[in-house]
Computed example of a mutant assay.
Amino acid sequence: MTASPAKEGSNLSLEQRAWGIRRNALLMGEVQGQGYIGQALGAADLLAVSYFHAMDYRPDEPEWEGRDRFYLSIGHYAIALYAAMIEAGILPETEIATYGMDDSRMPMSGMAAYTPGMEITGGSLGHGLGIAVGAALGLKRKNSASFVYNMLSDGELGEGSTWEAVMSAVQWKLDNLIAVVDFNNQQADGPSTAALATGPGTEAAKWEAFGWHAQEVDGNDIPALVAAFDAARNLPEAKPRVIICNTKMCKGIPFLEEREITHFVRVEPDEWQKALALHDTNRPD
């Protein structure tokens, strides 16, 4: 396995970091011949902004007390978060080949006990924001300056436990909590907007009605993401913040973008190398 060209320099742009995250995810998907690659490709830009612009952490000390926490509520997005943590140097690139294997530190669904930098175990969806609320409250009581970032899915917006956590965050004035919603309009049983999520242009108003500071952005527009993350972190009001990121499944691989998109995007065995070759020719300058 060849090393990622994204590792060749230390002063990489956010676009180059997102490119590296996508490449890491494709390499892991090829190892198993499967994985939630559509979500990983779609979320790469918001993960790049999280890890290489917004968050404070030490790659070689993942349990550093002063770190910002990144809580992945969506356990099946683990491939995306591993790809970001490999790019960030929290996990070694050499472990890509172990993805999903027995005794790997990178199981197919995220588990905190296995993986350095994986703050919580994802599983039954709808619990991540509640855990993040508890962590943010605990940090405030310790007078910590750290932020808690919680990445959750649009499908989780249909879970009652999510909205209980939304109300609790307002009650406790958790201005150190930033929720990041990956809105790709897909969940296990079809489009999220065919279930309980109302879709682009309407979700922010719901969060605002509960008392949150809400922004909605194109989740594949890095300058827009940077502005939104900065605004969330620097907001002077004592209230929690949410960034709703409208992302495109399979972003960056046109032949995958163009096929019928479902919650689990099938990639044929001969298509992994095709996707990697196409991706490698489009490295940002």
Rank of each mutant, 00 (worst) to 15 (best):
M118E: 05
A136D: 12
Y114V: 03
M118R: 01
D103Y: 09
L129Q: 08
P107H: 07
I120Y: 12
G128W: 03
G110Y: 00
P92L: 12
G128P: 10
S124P: 11
T94D: 15
S109P: 01
S104L: 05
V133C: 11
G123W: 09
G122H: 01
E95R: 06
P92D: 11
L125T: 00
L139M: 15
P107W: 01
H127D: 02
G130E: 03
L91D: 02
T98E: 15
G100W: 04
E93C: 08
L139V: 07
Y114F: 13
G110S: 03
Y114N: 11
A97L: 13
E95A: 12
A113C: 09
P116I: 02
Y114T: 05
T121W: 06
A136H: 10
Y114M: 12
T115W: 01
R105Y: 04
G100I: 00
M106P: 00
G89M: 06
A132R: 05
V133Q: 11
G122I: 01
L137R: 12
G122P: 08
I131S: 08
K140G: 05
G110F: 00
G130P: 06
P116T: 01
S109E: 09
M106Y: 02
G117D: 02
T121H: 11
G100L: 02
S109D: 06
T98A: 15
R105Q: 05
G89R: 04
G128T: 06
D103R: 01
A88G: 09
G134H: 14
L125C: 04
L91C: 06
D103V: 00
A88M: 10
G110L: 03
A112R: 05
K140N: 10
M101S: 15
G138M: 12
L139H: 14
M106E: 01
G126F: 02
G122C: 04
M108F: 10
L129Y: 13
E95S: 14
E93F: 07
S124R: 02
G100E: 09
G130A: 14
A135C: 13
D102H: 13
I90P: 08
S124V: 02
G89P: 12
A113T: 09
S109C: 07
A135P: 11
Y114S: 11
H127S: 05
A113I: 09
M111T: 02
G110K: 00
A112K: 04
G110C: 00
R141E: 15
A135F: 14
M108H: 07
H127R: 12
A88R: 13
E119S: 01
G126A: 07
H127A: 08
M106I: 00
L139I: 06
G123N: 13
T98K: 15
R141T: 10
G100Y: 05
T115D: 01
